[in-house]
């Protein structure tokens, strides 16, 4: 399965757009792209999952690692654009209590 990550630096945050599937095979690539951004002091990292239709538990693990890393550097991690399936996963695992996963899936701009 494939995954693509696109990074843009915006005024006050780093935005990471992910497309495809996040599973045990693609997760390392996401970690490499995501974790260094969380290691900047006081940085806000936003991950847009609008084009992600599947995440497995390894993928969730990446986000948890990134969240802890962001907190260590006084920054924060926010995840947006979750589809129903992915949203359910964050909600079942209770991770919506610790990670800001935005509101509903955002409309395409």
């Amino acid at each position: 399965m494939n995954m693509e990550v696109a990074h843009t630096r915006e005024e006050d945050k780093d935005l990471l757009k992910v497309a495809g599937e996040i599973d045990a095979y693609t997760a390392p690539e996401l970690r490499e792209a995501l974790v260094p951004l969380t290691e900047k002091e006081g940085n806000l990292v936003v991950v847009d999952l609008e084009n992600v239709d599947y995440i497995d538990s390894t993928g969730l693990g990446i986000f948890i690692g990134a969240l802890k890393s962001a907190h260590n550097y006084n920054g924060d991690l926010k995840i947006i654009g979750l589809n129903e399936r992915v949203h359910r996963l964050f909600s079942i695992t209770g991770l919506d209590e610790v990670i800001d996963i935005g509101e509903e899936r955002e409309e395409a701009k």
Binding site: R31, S57, I64, G65, K68, S69, T93
Partner: peptide, 8 residues
């Protein structure tokens, strides 16, 4: 456990 590991 490592920071990106968890158990349900």
């Amino acid at each position: 456990v490592a920071s990106n590991m968890f158990i349900t």
